[in-house]
């Protein structure tokens, strides 16, 4: 697009800057129902306005060109803020589209005016879409960060006794969750200087080969750190299913309840200290 087209538009945007920004602010403010402070909105839109004017002067109407880098980074910021503040995608895009309406009333009826307006309008459509894309990306990031947090929250590793840590597993175990459990458990063994871990699966509705494989890997990793794991909370239906599948837990101790597992761990600790004491004598 040659800059001759945008010349009159640029003149207009520059000459009536204050008035146009005020109108734009009003249009956007109305659509956001006062959920954003006017000061903040005013600052946001004036910055964006100036950046668009600068970009128009150098890059014409090519919204995805390098001349528009500043505009795009302002839009990224705007859409990120809107997403975090809980505005909808529409409410976010309106911030850009409202400028069209403001300009519409300004332009005369000449063919050139209409031509320029259409080009500007297309530019704003493109920038509006960019804003929505950015908005969606931010939402995705927020959601995945939250589910990651939930994942960590839902797998608490607790110190059950001096030298014994436990992790109660609840709900469906997929690879991602089991991975988190394994890492947290190994870290907890290290941090608390424990030699025993109890993995309680009372809250797990089904144990398939994938879950079993993850459990076995965790136990092996714990052993490499010098710690022993006990798996507890194996209910009758789970026990029968595991046998049906043909999974063997080998020499990994399994217990019906968490209490049994803790008792087992304490006996082991006693044995170990008795041996140590005997060695000292």
């Amino acid at each position: 697009m040659d800059s001759g087209d945008s010349k009159r538009l640029l003149e207009l945007l520059t000459a009536r800057r204050a008035e146009l920004i005020a109108q734009w602010e009003q249009a956007v403010g109305a659509s956001l129902h006062g959920r954003l402070s006017t000061v903040e909105l005013g600052r946001e839109l004036s910055e964006l306005y100036d950046a668009v004017v600068d970009a128009l002067a150098t890059g014409g109407f090519a919204g995805r060109s390098s001349e528009y880098a500043v505009v795009r980074s302002l839009l990224v910021e705007l859409s990120r803020n809107r997403a975090r503040q809980g505005f909808t995608p529409t409410e976010t895009a309106v911030s850009v589209f409202a400028l069209k309406e403001v300009l519409e009333s300004l332009l005369g009826g000449s063919v050139e005016d209409i031509h320029v307006y259409l080009q500007f309008s297309r530019l704003l459509d493109d920038l509006g879409l960019f804003t929505v894309e950015e908005y969606a990306r931010t939402r995705e990031e927020i959601i995945s960060a939250q589910s990651q947090q939930l994942l960590e929250l839902s797998t608490p590793v607790v110190k059950l006794w001096d030298g014994v840590v436990g992790v109660p597993l609840v709900g469906t175990l997929d690879s991602a969750r089991t991975q988190v459990v394994m890492e947290k458990l190994l870290q907890a063994l290290l941090d608390s200087n424990s030699a025993h871990a109890i993995i309680d699966i009372t809250g797990v509705p089904a144990v398939d080969t994938q879950v079993a494989q993850h459990l076995l890997k965790t136990v092996v990793a714990a052993r490499m750190m010098g710690a022993e794991c006990v798996i507890s909370g194996i209910r009758p239906q789970i026990a029968q299913t595991i046998v049906g599948l043909g999974i063997e837990f080998g020499d990994i101790p399994t217990k019906a309840t968490l209490a049994d597992a803790l008792r087992h761990a304490l006996v082991e600790i006693d044995k170990a200290s008795a041996t140590r004491a005997a060695g000292l004598l």
């Binding site: 469906t172 509705p205 089904a206 144990v207 398939d208 994938q210 239906q237 299913t241 049906g244």
Partner: peptide, 30 residues
């Protein structure tokens, strides 16, 4: 996971015992 939950629900409706529900759901998972 969704398929597994669907199977679990049907197994309950059909009156399968808890052991049989768990076996079928686990098979579906595999």
């Amino acid at each position: 996971v969704k398929a597994r939950q669907t199977v679990r629900l049907l197994a309950q409706q059909a009156g399968l015992s808890l052991v049989n529900q768990t076996k079928l759901v686990t098979a579906a998972s595999e």
